[in-house]
Write a protein that binds this DNA or RNA. Structure first.
Length: 478
RNA sequence: CGGGGUGUAGCGUAGCUUGGCUAGCGCGCCUGAUUUGGGAUCAGGAGGUCGCAGGUUCAAAUCCUGUCACCCCGACCA
């Protein structure tokens, strides 16, 4: 693999100060700006373009799997939020309240949705009567508000964009199948589109979503060895249905409760892209999610025919990729750096020498490699390169994650590993919450998930030594 | 919510301890010329309620009080 060469000095080295590196990338790549409201960020055009591509592709998959989009109100009356006990207890500390309408104090205060389970449930109770009404497969794209104490761009903001799927099914088997199906949709999307490998698994009871029967998660690993929960899928069983009275009459004319699911991913995924693929020169975008896949940079623009050639190539390549050209009067070196910070997968340089030789120079962002390509095979080469970059990024991210995945069979090893070599730690667990708490207390690591792919790395629980039930992934998390 | 820090031009900052004349510098921006294969050079130019409010003083970016905001580190969360 090619040695990574530091090309831009405007960004702090990640080895030196990872949080600062992250902030620098987010700012230098023009993804966001801070706003005048604490914890809220302005998503700038380039950042939003990434979100739009992500949204469009995911939405297509949702539609293809039978889901429909709806839009729920952003306000939830307090009484509605309180219908499911665990749920309200889980979210109450972080909701924002509306208490006035104009200058009139409201009879009942309204919360700004932190999530919309209660709204969907209330609605489902009204529209579901018969088994013929099932399943209901709804999704909404919206923003939610959670009054977090500490915020970071994309990873945790007061308001964030997401999608939340909410479905209602006739049976427990169906809701479980839906939960797993959507988890797989997320996992495939992460690896195929975002080039981020994930661990699929179930959350322990301690980490479970407020009100859920079971919570499944995809966990990814960032460059600094910290874990990021990248998507979740919950099976509610009939808990919410009972709290909200969502019943239907089955084929045998018996009244039944529905079984529900919910699942979501957020703008946090953009944070994951940054921290999984980024390097010391800035952002590195997988082609599938890059708003600009190739940027055309003319060299010596004042020379005869250069601008015309750049425009011609831009037009030609626009047929096969998302292409833009930069004909501004900045120096070429400045442009190189600019598009590297922004993570554009391929840079095309074209100057008088190239025109003379009937060729162009392609530079790939992931490896820094420069390739001379003849005009004739340009399209073929660009398509090939985009594919190659996409798969190379997934390969690199997988290697990185695997090299930072360890296992521990006793607590001393566990602690040493998590402190000295940050990453995932695999360890056996007896299933007792006391051990989970103890490990968190002692090491600062949280249980990430009980992976579907289990391994027998020992017989005994890493904490108490009793007989182990599962292998768990642990890590320090964002 | 606890601890720490910072607010001076679009961005980054000097000045504040010890009050004093026109608030200095770098980047960026505008104009022109020369340049152009890794953040070009020269010349000229524009841009400031010194976070906000009050106070002390002949005089406040500087001292005092209050207030607002943001950042970083912890405990809680996608």
């Amino acid at each position: 693999m090619a040695k990574e060469k530091k090309l831009v000095t405007a960004i702090t080295d990640m080895e030196q100060d990872f949080p600062q590196w992250y902030t620098d990338v987010v700012k230098k790549a023009d993804l966001i700006d801070y706003s005048s409201v604490k914890g809220c960020m302005i998503i700038r055009p380039y950042g939003y373009a990434i979100w739009e591509l992500l949204q469009r592709q995911l939405d297509d998959i949702f539609k293809a799997t039978g889901h429909e989009n709806v839009y729920m109100p952003m306000f939830i009356p307090e009484s509605l939020l309180q219908k499911e006990k665990d749920h309200v207890e889980g979210f109450a500390p972080e909701v924002a309240w509306v208490t006035y309408g104009g200058d009139t104090e409201l009879q009942e205060r309204l919360c700004v949705r932190p999530t919309s389970e209660t709204l969907f449930c209330d609605h489902y109770a009204n529209i579901i009567q018969s088994y013929r009404d099932l399943p209901k497969l709804y999704n909404q794209w919206c923003s939610v508000v959670r009054w977090e104490k500490t915020t970071r761009p994309f990873l945790r903001t007061t308001e964030f964009l997401w999608q939340e799927g909410h479905t209602a099914h006739a049976t427990a088997e169906e809701s479980e199948a839906e939960t797993i199906k959507m988890l797989n949709v997320y996992a495939d999307f992460c690896s195929d589109v975002l080039a981020i490998p994930v661990i699929k698994g179930e959350k322990t009871e301690k980490e479970r979503f407020a009100g859920a029967k079971s919570t499944y998660t995809i966990e990814s690993l960032m460059h600094d060895g910290k874990a990021l929960q990248s998507g979740t899928s919950h099976n509610f069983g009939d808990g919410f249905a009972k709290a909200f009275g969502i019943q239907y009459t089955d084929k045998d004319n018996k009244l039944q409760y529905v079984h529900q699911t919910s699942w979501g991913v957020t703008t946090r995924l953009i944070g994951a892209i940054i921290m999984v693929h980024g390097d010391n020169s800035g952002l590195v975008l997988p082609p599938a999610i890059a708003p600009t896949q190739l940027v055309v940079i003319p060299i010596a623009m004042h020379k005869e025919g250069v601008i015309e050639k750049a425009e011609e190539l831009t037009k030609r390549l626009s047929k096969i990729a998302r292409v833009k050209s930069d004909l501004s009067d900045k120096a070429p070196g400045w442009k190189f750096s600019e598009y590297e910070m922004k993570g554009v997968p391929i840079r095309l340089e074209v100057g008088p020498k190239d025109i003379e030789n009937n060729q162009v120079v392609l530079a790939r962002r992931d490896t820094g490699e420069k390739i001379i390509v003849s005009m004739e095979e340009l399209e073929t080469k660009v398509e090939e390169l985009l594919k190659d970059i996409q798969s190379n990024l997934l390969e690199k991210a997988s290697q990185n994650r695997n090299s930072k995945t360890y296992s521990a069979t006793n607590l001393a090893d566990f602690e040493k590993t998590i402190n000295e070599t940050p990453g995932f730690v695999k360890a056996m667990w007896c299933g007792d919450k006391a051990c989970e708490d103890a490990i968190k207390e002692k090491t600062g690591a949280t249980s990430r998930c009980i992976p579907f792919e289990q391994e027998e790395i020992a017989d005994a629980c890493v904490c108490c030594g009793k007989k182990a039930k599962h292998m768990l992934y642990w890590g320090r998390a964002y």
